[in-house]
Write a protein that binds this DNA or RNA. Structure first.
Lengths: 333, 333
DNA sequence: CTGCGCTTTGTAATCGATTACATGCTAGCT
DNA sequence: AGCTAGCATGTAATCGATTACAAAGCGCAG
């Protein structure tokens, strides 16, 4: 390669990575040789020397969930032009136990980490911190309590409150809620927002109207069965995810109930299908693409800073209520 | 590190990557040192020496499409235990022009490649081939004509024919089709299967009943508008993707039409929401997880083979019709 | 004319692991 | 005892780029 261009390897390297320091003529000669041979730089060698990996890892709780795909697209969109590859790890896969995850997190594998999973084992992060192999981490959507890490999130409690107030405005006084999975930060934030809004509006808080769920379609359907089994039913239900809302409505529909006639439903996320579901879903819109993009931007900035250990930043993106057909005025029967 | 364990770097390396060749005692000493220091091997250096990258690249036409997420999960599921990181590239992102893609494909970036996108620029692959930097490639779902590459696919034409025959069995004689995007291999395979089945069954093939689409929700809705505008409407429509089927039904529903009363609809893919849509979607089920897993298996095998340049393999996975509520007997009006 | 400083290029060390080759040691055989 | 086979380990080269340092070439000012 260097021989072909008639210069030393050092000059070739300079021509490629710092073109401004080599003379016009040599630069041309090198580029010419590059074109002729179809030479491609060896990233592994470059990264070894530069002591970086050129990759960022994204931890996704469940790749199968369409909620995440747009966030990934947002991340990719920012990371690729900045020269970072995006490595994806599904934290809920069976092989992804602590040991495995650990090797991913370690800085010999990636320059930085975006986690969409707020329930990474605490021990893991402490181990990382201890071995000072901790790469910069940014949480997105979900996060870990403690304020140690930067995060890009939405105001979940406010979103939940918006949903409840919307239902109240429509005349609903008996409002239920389908929770997310136990122990999840989003679950508790949305639950808290829901309770706060109910209280503020002077509405009843009835334990039987709070259904278990885990964000999935299936769990929404199960919540619907629980709703059907109630003596006194809420006239409106706020689901902590659109998927659950779809499952809820779907199951009711199979039993001959109709939304919003028999019960109003509000979801959370505004996934693509929400506006095309039947009835179209009233929901809390999250800027999924922006969440990914912001998280990537933040992370890359942090990687650039070197070991500056900047204080944790918290970015809160706006949510908004999108009123569609799944919620309507309360119907006397 | 080596000093801590009281041995040479060579021995440390052997203890870690070929434990069987070092003595019991030294092995223990090394592992002990590893545990105490929290040492993590530097993948970059290892990969440089081994002349591999430890990563496989997956090219996805559109990360935002939930159809792909499960395939990715399948890939990840196989790749991670085999020691490969999964790098994801969205080929439809604006920054992903030929040059960018090229650097991804090149073997200094990844040991192999799975493409879910059958419309990679031909020039790209030729360039790769020419510069003999071509890493093993496996196509999944989509593929490129020419039989040069291994692929893991389903029998799209057969799937389409199953859909048409199903509608015929229900009494439909006027059957339409919503196509996928122009120039896509899936579009043409499914179109071909549709036409072949129509012909075989002695049904009319009416150009106005073939609607343009691009697999998206939105394009399904547009097809519905086209359907509404027809003088003589088909009583059943087979959509080349579930997303389009959902968009189609949704748009009709907004106009006061109901499925399957006014028109039967069959989709393709069996995405998660299909069984929870209202009406639940009759569709052609693809084993998405298996497609990903098989593709990864095939690719990794190929990578292991070294430059053996094995002949292209074609794996065809089974599809099946899942009859649900969106298709029903033809209703006289 | 000499010398300083700037630009451009080459030499060689370096990143951190792997591995070919050499060496030392032990066991087993004659 | 002497010799060989084979195991365990150390030495040093290697992967392919980057970069500190040195040196060469050139222009310009004193």
């Amino acid at each position: 390669m260097a021989r072909l261009a008639g210069v030393s390897t050092a000059t070739v390297s300079r021509a490629i990575s710092t073109p401004s320091v080599v003379s016009e003529a040599t630069r041309e000669a090198v580029f010419d040789a590059v074109r002729r041979t179809g030479y491609q730089i060896n990233m592994t060698a470059r990264n070894l020397r530069r002591r970086r990996t050129g990759a960022i890892v994204v931890m996704v709780p469940d790749l199968g969930n369409p909620f995440f795909s747009r966030i990934l697209a947002g991340i990719e969109h920012v990371a690729a032009p900045a020269g970072f590859s995006v490595l994806i790890v599904d934290t809920k896969q069976p092989h992804a136990e602590e040991g495995q995850l650990f090797t991913y997190l370690h800085n010999t594998r990636a320059d930085g980490l975006i986690s969409l999973d707020g329930s990474l084992p605490r021990a893991l992060l402490e181990r990382l911190d201890g071995s000072n192999g901790l790469p910069p981490i940014v949480f997105a959507c979900e996060w870990m309590a403690g304020g140690l890490f930067s995060k890009v999130v939405i105001d979940n409690a406010a979103g939940a409150a918006m949903a409840v107030r919307h239902l109240h405005r429509l005349g609903h006084r008996r409002i239920g809620h389908v929770r997310g999975p136990q122990g999840n930060v989003l679950t508790s934030a949305r639950l808290k927002g829901t309770r706060a809004a109910l209280k503020e509006l002077g509405l009843r808080i009835v334990p039987e109207w709070f259904f278990d769920g885990d964000f999935s379609l299936q769990s929404g359907a199960e919540a619907a069965r629980a709703w059907l089994a109630l003596q006194e039913r809420p006239t409106a239900v706020f689901c902590a995810s659109d998927q659950m809302a779809c499952g809820f409505i779907s199951e009711l529909s199979m039993e001959g109930y109709s939304v919003p006639r028999d019960v109003s439903v509000v979801g959370f996320d505004d996934i693509d299908i929400a506006r095309r579901f039947i009835p179209s879903l009233t929901t809390i819109h999250q800027p999924r693409n922006d969440i990914g993009a912001e998280a990537a931007k933040l992370l890359i900035e942090r990687i650039g800073n070197g070991k500056a250990a900047a204080p944790a930043v918290e970015e809160v993106l706006p949510v908004e209520l999108v009123a569609r057909e799944s919620s309507g005025p309360v119907v006397p029967h």
